[in-house]
Amino acid sequence: LLGVVLAFIRRPKVVNDIKFGPSEMEIVKITGHSWKEGFIKGTIPQLPLSVLNSVIAVCKLSSDLFPGREFSATSVSVTVGLMNLVGCWFGALPCCHGAGGLAGQYKFGGRSGGCVALLGAAKMMLGLVLGTSLVTILHQFPVGILGVLLLFAGIELAMTCRDMNSKQESFVMLICTAVSLVGSSAALGFVCGMLVHVLLKLRTPCMP
């Protein structure tokens, strides 16, 4: 809410660009060439990040934040796939669950599916009332506020390091983090982390 208020303060003339009412929807015609380009340039590069952040991390974080209410990787993967298969025909952007979103909602008080339902209902209402005018408002949204939200979400995600039970596990985690940040690739960090984990397991003598 604060971000929206600041958006109007930064550019008061944005009020003139607001048009009430939902935008027209139409089915997007996706050609065979578009499917091929999307698969090669979009799906393959995004797959490692989606699997790690939208499936594995979400399942692990949900079990940490909500003990006894665990979700399987299969169910999470299916829901991510379904929302994208349905949304792409209407020009929707790729969607996922995301561990960052879960951590952020938990950090700001979300403790049940009700908060997600309310968030979804609010977005649908805004879409029906403002349509594409909402994009104009969001363009003026202060980046600093988004940074604060990401900071708290990152802190909540970082707290999962408390599960590290040994120096080896902590070392693997640091390797994953360092490589992902330096190489700007979660996939590269994941692969390096797995290699280090395997090497440490091979190096550690088997207990009798």
Rank of each mutant, 00 (worst) to 15 (best):
A7Q: 00
F8P: 09
I9G: 13
R10F: 07
P12T: 13
V14D: 09
V15C: 15
V15S: 13
N16Q: 14
G21M: 02
G21E: 14
P22Q: 08
S23F: 13
S23L: 04
E24R: 11
M25D: 10
E26A: 12
I27K: 01
K29S: 12
K29N: 12
T31E: 09
H33K: 11
F39R: 05
K41H: 14
K41R: 15
G42N: 03
L47A: 10
L47N: 01
P48S: 10
L49I: 15
L49V: 03
V51P: 10
V51R: 06
S54F: 11
V55T: 15
A57L: 09
S62P: 02
S63G: 02
S63D: 04
L65H: 07
L65T: 08
P67A: 04
R69M: 10
E70P: 02
F71A: 07
F71Q: 13
S72K: 10
A73Y: 05
T74I: 11
S75Q: 11
V78Y: 07
V80F: 12
V80H: 08
G81K: 06
N84M: 05
G87L: 06
W89C: 05
P94V: 00
H97R: 04
G100A: 10
L102Y: 00
Q105P: 03
Q105H: 14
G109D: 02
G110H: 06
V116Q: 15
V116L: 12
A117E: 13
M124C: 15
M124S: 08
M124L: 15
M125A: 13
L126P: 14
G131N: 00
G131Q: 09
L134H: 10
I137S: 11
L138W: 11
F141N: 04
P142M: 01
P142R: 10
G147N: 00
L151F: 15
L151K: 09
A153R: 00
A153C: 01
G154H: 01
I155E: 05
L157H: 08
M159I: 12
T160W: 06
C161G: 09
D163P: 03
Q168G: 00
Q168W: 00
E169Q: 09
E169D: 08
M173Y: 12
I175P: 00
I175C: 05
V179G: 01
V179M: 01
L181S: 08
G183I: 04
A186C: 06
A187M: 08
V191N: 05
C192R: 02
G193N: 01
M194C: 04
L195Q: 00
V196I: 05
H197C: 02
L199R: 12
K201E: 00
K201H: 06
L202W: 07
R203N: 03
P205Y: 03
C206F: 14
M207E: 06
M207D: 05
